[in-house]
Simulated assay, not measured.
Amino acid sequence: MPDKDAGTPRVFLIRHGETEWTKSGQYTGRSDIPLTENGEKQVISSARLVVGPGKIINPSKITQLFISPRKRALRTYELLFDEAARHKFEGKVEITEDIREWDYGLYEGILPSEAKAGRKERGLDKGRPWNIWIDGCEEGESPKDIAGRLDRVIAKIREIQGPYMHGEKPVDVVIVAHGQILRAFARRWLGFEIGVKLPMMLEPGAVGVLSYEHHNVDEPAFLLGVNMAESEE
């Protein structure tokens, strides 16, 4: 059976590798924390499996990259693509605050349980438990703030990919960022509010894939399953 969506552009979501705060579970937004040694190994392993000619992420098909300015994301980009690929990406890389991690405000550097305890002490959440996807963060970003900046990135991507829905030109896009913001990005990609209940997981150094149904830029979709060796030169 032929693949009815073959050639449709893709968006690859790359979460940076492990950091010390990833391991501990502390909220890591604006803090500029490096990858651990294991975090670097995670990214290298992912690159070996999915990046290269004939692999899922084929550098020759990438037309634009959006990268968070945090060092953990920038280092992930360096490890994911070799020097030759990065040289070819000159002029295609946008390092942008629009795809940085959620600003956790008062919760930066603490555990979720500590954030909840602090909110309780301040008399918050009497009606229902705190939900970051609905309530946002004290002195940090709200879901509306997040949606605003992610929607700007999505609009750029749709403008890039919209004219080439049938593979007329390779226009894959790569985003290298963070766990929370990439899950928020997936919600907005599908047209959902940030607060919609949509449980998702994205491990450190992992790759997620978004695309479109029916070669239609107005039908954004998840790619739940990806052929591991489907991209040709």
Rank of each mutant, 00 (worst) to 15 (best):
D3A: 13
G148K: 07
D32A: 06
D125C: 13
P9R: 01
A117P: 06
A6D: 09
G17S: 02
S46K: 11
K41I: 00
R10P: 09
L35M: 11
G162W: 14
I56K: 06
F12Q: 00
T22K: 08
E37K: 15
L150H: 00
L35I: 04
T22S: 15
R15L: 05
S142Q: 12
H16F: 06
G105C: 08
K41R: 14
K55D: 02
R75H: 12
I146C: 11
T28R: 14
I14D: 01
R122P: 04
I57Y: 07
I44W: 10
R158W: 13
Q64I: 03
R70P: 06
G191N: 07
A229D: 08
G162D: 03
G39V: 04
R122V: 05
V93S: 04
R158K: 15
A115L: 11
N227Q: 12
K156W: 07
E213R: 15
L49E: 09
D103G: 03
T22E: 07
E78I: 02
S45L: 11
A117E: 13
M228L: 15
I99E: 00
G162I: 12
V11I: 14
K61L: 06
E138A: 12
Y212V: 00
G205L: 11
D3V: 07
S211Q: 01
G25A: 08
D5K: 14
V43P: 09
R70V: 00
I14Y: 09
E78G: 04
W102A: 02
G162C: 12
W102Q: 00
I62Q: 03
D125S: 09
E232V: 15
G179L: 04
E114Q: 15
E168D: 07
I44P: 06
K41W: 07
K88R: 13
P34R: 02
R70S: 09
L223S: 03
